[in-house]
Design a protein around this nucleic acid. Structure first.
Lengths: 125, 125
DNA sequence: AACAATACATACTTTTTAGTATGTAGCATA
DNA sequence: TATGCTACATACTAAAAAGTATGTATTGTT
């Protein structure tokens, strides 16, 4: 007899899982990082900082970050509209971790590049 | 005239992005974390440790981690087969960050639980 | 000959995530 | 009256990720 494969509802299995759900997705990491680097960014500024994001995804992602309490959204009542985004206190707690990840990524990229260089130019003594 | 929305190929935009691609996905974080906690795990042990993963996803995810050099795969030539997985040196570099993330998740979950408790039982002086 | 053990492979379907294109609000200025 | 500015909304489509079900290989044991 064959064991049936798993079918599992939406239990937040563990805290690693919980955390990844909040910062996963294609753009969340970068948005959080830029909000850290620039402290406050308007919608249009974010859009220009992350040139490969569409307005749909930018809005959607910002909404998710907001409802997870990772960022603040400040609306100025004026025309044309002005909306500012910044990290919340909880969002700021994630910065050391994103920094670590970024540095890891940097060193990995550097390492890979070195390897490629070596491969194409060995025997150059 | 309306600005055209972005269409972008597969450039690894930045190191934050690069890193997230390697540890994103539904199970990568947990697999790495368990390999850290147990040092070495066989395929079946991993499967039992992460009960909500299917064999397809487990295999697929392990292959990705392997090709990104984050884990080692050791095959014993015997029947029935035996395969052991463990963290590579590069994979180990990710542990502090996953630990941090896990702790953040734990404290967030605790916090949310507290809030709910407070809401349903305030005025209990 | 049938079955158990282990670590997968694979075809197919469903769900989730992301992308495309276009529209809206409200006031200011040409 | 038309256009611009800014921050979106929304309908629809496409692509990526995940899930379901079932099959395979090898060898020892019953």
């Amino acid at each position: 007899m064959i064991k049936k494969q798993k079918y599992c509802p939406d239990i937040p299995t563990c805290s690693v899982d919980y955390a990844f759900r909040r910062i996963g997705g294609k753009y969340k990491g970068r948005i959080l990082w830029y909000l850290h680097e620039f402290t406050v960014l308007r919608y249009g500024e974010l859009s220009r900082t992350i040139p490969d994001i569409t307005t749909k995804m930018l809005t959607q992602t910002l909404r998710e970050l907001e409802s997870d309490n990772l960022i603040n959204r400040k609306v100025y009542k004026q025309v044309p509209p002005k909306v500012e985004y910044s990290l919340s206190e909880i969002g700021k707690e994630l910065i050391p971790f994103i920094r670590y990840l970024k540095e890891w990524g940097d060193s990995r990229i550097k390492n890979e590049t070195n390897k490629n260089t070596k491969n194409t130019s060995h025997n150059n003594l």
